[in-house]
Amino acid sequence: MPRDSEPRRVEIDRVIHEPARLLLVAHLYVVESADYVFLMQNTDFTWGNLSSHLSKLEEAGYVEIVKDFVGRKPHTMVKLTAAGRRAFDTYRRQMKGLLADLPE
Protein backbone atom coordinates (compact mmCIF):
# COMPACT_ATOMS: atom_id res chain seq x y z
CA MET A 1 0.00 0.00 0.00
CA PRO A 2 1.56 3.37 -0.96
CA ARG A 3 2.33 5.82 1.80
CA ASP A 4 0.98 9.40 1.67
CA SER A 5 4.45 10.81 1.02
CA GLU A 6 4.93 8.67 -2.11
CA PRO A 7 4.09 10.38 -5.39
CA ARG A 8 0.91 9.22 -7.12
CA ARG A 9 1.48 7.20 -10.28
CA VAL A 10 -0.77 7.93 -13.21
CA GLU A 11 -0.67 5.75 -16.31
CA ILE A 12 -0.75 8.18 -19.21
CA ASP A 13 -1.82 6.74 -22.54
CA ARG A 14 1.34 7.15 -24.65
CA VAL A 15 -0.51 6.65 -27.92
CA ILE A 16 -2.60 9.78 -27.31
CA HIS A 17 0.08 11.64 -25.35
CA GLU A 18 2.18 12.32 -28.46
CA PRO A 19 1.25 15.95 -29.46
CA ALA A 20 0.55 15.25 -33.13
CA ARG A 21 -1.72 12.31 -32.32
CA LEU A 22 -3.39 14.34 -29.57
CA LEU A 23 -4.25 16.98 -32.15
CA LEU A 24 -5.60 14.34 -34.53
CA VAL A 25 -7.74 12.68 -31.86
CA ALA A 26 -9.05 16.09 -30.73
CA HIS A 27 -10.17 16.85 -34.31
CA LEU A 28 -11.82 13.47 -34.67
CA TYR A 29 -13.45 13.77 -31.24
CA VAL A 30 -15.56 16.80 -32.22
CA VAL A 31 -16.92 15.32 -35.46
CA GLU A 32 -18.60 12.07 -36.44
CA SER A 33 -16.02 11.19 -39.13
CA ALA A 34 -13.66 13.00 -41.51
CA ASP A 35 -11.49 12.26 -44.51
CA TYR A 36 -7.74 12.70 -44.99
CA VAL A 37 -8.11 16.09 -46.72
CA PHE A 38 -10.08 17.53 -43.80
CA LEU A 39 -7.49 16.28 -41.31
CA MET A 40 -4.58 17.56 -43.42
CA GLN A 41 -6.16 21.01 -43.75
CA ASN A 42 -6.95 21.31 -40.07
CA THR A 43 -3.73 19.92 -38.64
CA ASP A 44 -1.19 21.00 -41.30
CA PHE A 45 0.22 17.46 -41.45
CA THR A 46 1.62 15.96 -44.63
CA TRP A 47 -0.01 12.88 -46.12
CA GLY A 48 2.83 10.64 -44.92
CA ASN A 49 2.82 12.06 -41.42
CA LEU A 50 -0.94 11.69 -41.17
CA SER A 51 -0.83 8.10 -42.42
CA SER A 52 1.84 7.17 -39.87
CA HIS A 53 -0.06 8.63 -36.93
CA LEU A 54 -3.39 7.19 -38.05
CA SER A 55 -1.78 3.75 -38.39
CA LYS A 56 -0.60 4.00 -34.79
CA LEU A 57 -4.06 5.03 -33.64
CA GLU A 58 -5.65 2.24 -35.70
CA GLU A 59 -3.27 -0.31 -34.16
CA ALA A 60 -4.37 0.85 -30.72
CA GLY A 61 -8.01 0.44 -31.78
CA TYR A 62 -8.73 4.15 -31.36
CA VAL A 63 -9.69 4.94 -34.94
CA GLU A 64 -11.52 3.10 -37.67
CA ILE A 65 -10.37 3.71 -41.25
CA VAL A 66 -13.02 3.02 -43.88
CA LYS A 67 -11.87 2.90 -47.51
CA ASP A 68 -14.41 3.11 -50.30
CA PHE A 69 -14.90 4.71 -53.71
CA VAL A 70 -16.70 7.94 -54.60
CA GLY A 71 -17.31 7.47 -58.31
CA ARG A 72 -13.96 6.08 -59.47
CA LYS A 73 -11.85 7.84 -56.89
CA PRO A 74 -10.76 6.12 -53.68
CA HIS A 75 -12.03 7.87 -50.58
CA THR A 76 -10.93 7.21 -47.02
CA MET A 77 -12.96 8.25 -43.99
CA VAL A 78 -11.56 8.15 -40.47
CA LYS A 79 -13.72 7.75 -37.39
CA LEU A 80 -12.88 7.68 -33.69
CA THR A 81 -14.02 4.38 -32.17
CA ALA A 82 -15.85 4.10 -28.83
CA ALA A 83 -12.56 2.93 -27.28
CA GLY A 84 -10.85 6.00 -28.77
CA ARG A 85 -13.44 8.35 -27.31
CA ARG A 86 -13.14 6.69 -23.91
CA ALA A 87 -9.34 6.86 -24.05
CA PHE A 88 -9.43 10.56 -24.97
CA ASP A 89 -11.90 11.32 -22.13
CA THR A 90 -9.66 9.49 -19.66
CA TYR A 91 -6.57 11.27 -21.00
CA ARG A 92 -8.19 14.71 -20.63
CA ARG A 93 -9.24 13.92 -17.08
CA GLN A 94 -5.79 12.67 -16.15
CA MET A 95 -3.97 15.62 -17.70
CA LYS A 96 -6.27 18.14 -16.05
CA GLY A 97 -5.65 16.46 -12.68
CA LEU A 98 -1.91 16.30 -13.24
CA LEU A 99 -1.55 19.93 -14.28
CA ALA A 100 -3.71 21.10 -11.42
CA ASP A 101 -1.49 19.22 -8.95
CA LEU A 102 1.78 20.72 -10.21
CA PRO A 103 3.26 23.69 -8.32
CA GLU A 104 3.07 27.13 -10.01
Binding site: V31, E32, S33, A34, V37, F38
Partner: peptide, 10 residues
Protein backbone atom coordinates in the same frame (compact mmCIF):
# COMPACT_ATOMS: atom_id res chain seq x y z
CA UNK B 1 -11.38 19.12 -52.82
CA UNK B 2 -9.84 21.84 -50.65
CA UNK B 3 -11.74 21.23 -47.42
CA UNK B 4 -12.35 17.50 -47.61
CA UNK B 5 -15.38 15.64 -46.34
CA UNK B 6 -16.59 15.66 -42.77
CA UNK B 7 -19.67 14.39 -40.99
CA UNK B 8 -20.38 16.80 -38.17
CA UNK B 9 -21.50 15.80 -34.68
CA UNK B 10 -25.15 14.68 -34.21
Amino acid sequence: PRLGTVKFAP
